[in-house]
Nucleic acid binder design. Structure first.
Lengths: 347, 347
DNA sequence: CTGAAAGCGCTTACAG
DNA sequence: CTGAAAGCGCTTACAG
């Protein structure tokens, strides 16, 4: 490999001077600068980032720490959107992105912590997980700049998240306005704080209209399509099935629809379904999915901007809240007074 | 930050000895080893990868160089599957993965090259692109180990790719067996070599059955659903439209189906559609997509294994070819003798 | 089994 | 404007 000393020798100057032109610093005469630049171009010299990193204490690498397995990451379109947003901002700043998922769930957070303590990255963006709770204090004392995608559990943590509460209120109110009185909700485990917020929105929206959310209509999946299908089937088998289902992510909503169709129950005529996220697939299906849009790209971008602000010691105003929006499409419709013999139901 | 010298001082030994226990090397007495390990645990010391990298000439980072924009990467489920395979293998080896996409298409390859020359990564996996041709010679002289996902254009290049030719033969023969005689094909631009192979398969499969592929039925999209929809619409508007469409990736196939449905043409009764890739979505739709399965995960895994073999100076047998498989589902059916007044068509 | 010294390839004051 | 020297935090022969 050619080194800075080699370039210096070829240009007939010292390494210190080559370093100056490498870093676009002043106090180099035009003449010697030109000569050095020519030698660099001729040799195709690329300075060692390792050496540079050692003396500058910067690696120009941002870590994206995801305390999930890579299977979970790549199955989650919303997480991928967040990643795309981070990637875009990172590219923009000429930073590199290191992707770090976990091999096993149990030590996911401690693996993230180790990465954060190491100096391979200059700092990190970390995706929230419930398992983070025991590490809250350790995390808050990390010196490397880092921001969390999720809800801050500790005052000193910089975080960005969507308006989960507001989105859930909109979705619930939408269903209530359509005449639905038995609205089922499918949440998920592991349950990041965002889901608690959505549940709070569901309950508050009921309360605000003088209704009461029936907790027996709360089922739990695992974010996957299959788990949504199972929960949906379970709901439809109830003696008093719901007329609408609000799945707390889109994939589970798609599962509910699959399950309903398989039983010959039409959506939205006999069952309304609303999701959360607005993944790309949501608008492609027929009927297209009514859902709460949570802009993953914007979340990722905001997180990355926050990271760079911290890195540059600039003021950051966090937590950042990204607003959500109800997208009414084809899977939500008016509740019918009678269906499947449940004549006690009215609207 | 605490350094190795600090640990040495606390343990009352030299840095060289600490280094030995850090790297699990012999010739340290059990007693001093235990003492050093205790100090490390107490201080939470994590050795500097920068310094280690500088003297060891290893960064323990594998670069995934994608000469596309991040938008293109994240829109392509097959690429994401490849990435998942790489991620899995990389995790397995305790290596880190650096994701490097391109900001602009024009200098994508030279950006990849710069990354490959730099020492932030120990080597790379690079996704093939047509623009690579002019760089073929430069690439083959790179000293860092790297493998290409795609077809080798140069003997010294290590590559892994799917059996694109074989898969296309299977798909084409399938349609011919179903009685189709006017089979349209939608290819894409930019056209990686894989697509040339698929086209060759289409032509050979025709020839093998005494037929001739009508080149006027070859249209070009850009891999996206929208481009597939447009091409499909164009095909259906022909005076003598095809009875089957073989789209060279799944997303374009989905577009063709969308376009057909929008015109009230039913799939597969009036139009058969076959894709390529077998993305997750393919089996979820109704009817589910008939397609050629190209296992992205296995491709990524094989590429990563090849990289590690090169890194360890172990023998590698490349190019590696991953076999493809025809998955017959609901979008391909028997050709009908008459449709839309094209009474000159027979089978 | 242990440690002193040189070296990895840069950058950073500092002196000239 | 230019360069000699020290330093970043490790590892690697080598001597003891």
């Amino acid at each position: 490999m050619t080194t800075i000393d080699e370039i210096a020798r070829l240009a007939g100057v010292s390494a210190a001077t080559v370093s100056k032109v490498l870093n676009n610093r002043p106090y180099v005469s035009d003449h010697t600068r030109a000569r050095i630049e020519r030698v660099i171009a001729e040799t195709g010299f690329v300075p060692s980032q390792r050496a540079r990193g050692l003396s500058q204490r910067r690696s120009y690498i941002l870590g994206l720490l995801i305390p999930y397995t890579s299977d979970e990451l790549f199955a989650d379109p919303h997480l991928l959107e967040i990643m795309r947003g981070i990637e875009a901002e990172t590219n923009h700043r000429e930073y590199n992105l290191l992707l770090s998922t976990s091999r096993a769930a149990q030590d996911a957070v401690s693996a993230c912590l180790r990465m954060l303590r190491s100096d391979v990255i200059d700092g990190a963006i970390m995706v929230e997980t419930l398992d983070i709770l025991p590490y809250t204090d350790v995390l808050s004392t990390q010196s490397a700049p880092w921001v969390m995608i999720g809800y801050p559990r500790h005052n000193e943590v910089r975080a960005v998240h969507a308006d989960d509460y507001g989105g859930a209120v909109l979705a619930t109110r939408h269903l209530i306005d359509l005449g639905h009185r038995r609205i089922a909700v499918i949440t998920s485990t592991p349950r990041p704080f965002a889901l608690e917020e959505r549940l709070r929105g569901v309950r508050d929206a009921h309360r605000a209209t003088g209704l009461h959310f029936d907790e027996r209509l709360l089922l739990t999946g695992d974010f996957s399509i299959a788990s949504g299908e199972q929960a949906g089937t379970e709901l439809l088998a109830m003696s008093e099935p719901p007329s609408a289902v609000f799945a707390l992510n889109d994939r589970m909503a798609l599962g509910v629809i699959r399950g309903a169709l398989a039983q010959g129950i039409s959506v939205p005529d006999q069952l309304s379904v609303v999701g959360f996220d607005d993944i790309a697939l949501a608008s492609l299906l027929n009927p297209a999915l009514t859902t709460v849009r949570q802009p993953g790209f914007a979340l990722g971008e905001a997180a990355a901007r926050g990271f760079f602000a911290l890195l540059d010691n600039q003021p950051v105003d966090m937590p950042t809240v990204i607003s959500t929006e109800l997208i009414v499409r084809g899977t939500s419709g008016a509740a019918v007074t009678q269906r499947r013999g449940d004549d006690e139901m009215t609207c």
